[in-house]
Structures are given as structure tokens and as C-alpha cells.
Amino acid sequence: MSMSPATQQEFDTQSLFYNRWKSRSLRNSLMNWVSGSIALIACLPLLSLLGMVIYRGSRALSWSSFVELPPAPMQEGGGFGNAMVGTITMVSIAALLAVPSGILTAIFLAFLGPDSKLAEAVRFVARVLSGLPSILAGVFAYAMVVLVMKSYSAFAGGVALAVLMLPIILLTAEQSMRMVQARLIEAAVGMGCTSAQVVRRVLLPTAFPGILTGVLLAVARAAGETAPLLFTALFSNYWLVQEGQLKLAEPTASLAVFIFNFSGSAFDNLVEMAWSGALILVLMILTLNLSAQLLAKKLQR
């Protein structure tokens, strides 16, 4: 900055070399250290959380955890088998609702009418919905399903989870369909394919890994949600299948609500159960997430 013509006569060329004790350099390395340690601090919570969940969760974990009903206070053994079945059932209901409609809507957004006003509006709504607090999805399902059916149910829980899954599936599916090369689609159209044929033969097969990634992420998110299930599926101490019947219209246990209910307990054995449940839930979700990421990585190649 100070290289005005006047200084040209006696210009100190040394000043052009890097000098680590200059205030500019010092400030630079100070910032390196400060921001580096902050970034490092950001990693600590995850390590601590995973460590605690694995350490405390594995203590009470046994085979009976997976196949037995929740124990009473002070009772030996017991498990959360019904909660795992409940979570899987409700996430499946949600996926049945959200996956087909999400993918078909994404086909509209990416292929049938990408520049239409409707598509713009759908994208905006989907983005806003993806930021919807999960408890409001629960309030919505409570008003739509619980109040109408007059009972807490697995179905209501599924609807609440579907509301949360839909925007994730929709937005990621649109993204991956847009990545399909235009020339593939143009070639198909040039051969006289109808839109439906292009979608079935070209668009969906090519975009499939990306769509699957989105679905896996959405399922992982739904499996861990507690708030929307609190007053839609409630909780139950019994199996979902009773006397050979699938009781979808009755209160249903889920792993997440199990953890919430048991974590506040005054009894040690119930708290230990909650930690074991947390370990299983975290393992389920991380597996889903990692497979989604591996898929995405494969895609990039």
C-alpha cells in the first residue's frame, strides 16, 4: 500500500520477505490457532455423546432387550422389543405415504413442468416444510387423525412422520433427477417415447441411487423423531400384534418415546434401559446415514 513513487529510491526489499514476527503474520497465526481450536471443540460433543451412549448403553444390553416387553420398576430383565417393532411399523407407514408421492411430485418438478408456476410454488412450500418444527407435524396429525379416529394410533404416528419425510424425499429426488444428463432424455424423446416412458426407462433408473439416498436419509430422520409421536402414537407397554391381529388403531410404542419416558424415571434399571434403547436407536440411524453417504459417494464417481 505504501509503494508511492517517493519511497522507490530507498525501498527496503527485505520488507517483501515473509517475516513471522510481523504483526500481520502474528495475527494470521493467532487466528489459525483460535479458529482451529474452535473447530476442534466442535468435534468434542459428538465424541463424548457417542462414547457415553456406547458405554452406558451396552451395560444393560442383552438378548432379552430385543424380545421382551418394558420392565416394571425394580424388575430384572425386560426390554424394548415392542418399541422397536412400533418404530419400524410407523416408519414403514410413513414411507408408504411419503415415498411414492414425493417421487411423483419430484418427477413433476424435474421433468414435466420444471419452470411452471406450480413447480416454483411446490419448491417453496417443500423448503418451508423441511424447516417445520417436528412437534407441529405431531399437532397436525393429532388434529387430522387422532381427533377424527378418537384414538391414539400407529397410523396417526405414521402420518406425522410422513409430513416430515415428504420434503426431504421430494427435494433430494428432484435434485438427483436434475443431474440426469439432458442428452439421455432428449435421445429417448427423439425416439418417440411418451413422458411416462421416458420417466420409467430413463429418468428413474438413472436417478435411482440419488433417490434412494434421499429416502434413506428421510427414513433415518423419521426413525429418530420423538416429538411428533408423543401425542399421536403415545406409548404402549404391549406388543403391536395381539391375538394374531395387527393393532394399528391403538396406542403404539416407539423406541424414541421409550427413551423419553424411561429417561426421567427414578429407577436405575429403567434409566439403564433408556440408555440401551438410545444405543440401538443411534446404531440404526447411523447405519442408515452411512449407507446413504456411501451411496452418494458412489454416485459422485
Binding site: L49, V53, T226, I259, W275, I285, L286
Partner: peptide, 15 residues
């Protein structure tokens, strides 16, 4: 950072 986003809220509460 991505895994932090994946951990369920209720597990954060427990921790």
C-alpha cells in the same frame, strides 16, 4: 458434523 445432525433429539436430551 453430518453425524451430529443425524443424532436424534431425544438422545441429545438424554446425554
Amino acid at each position: 458434523v453430518e453425524l451430529l445432525a443425524a443424532i436424534p433429539s431425544v438422545v441429545y436430551g438424554l446425554w
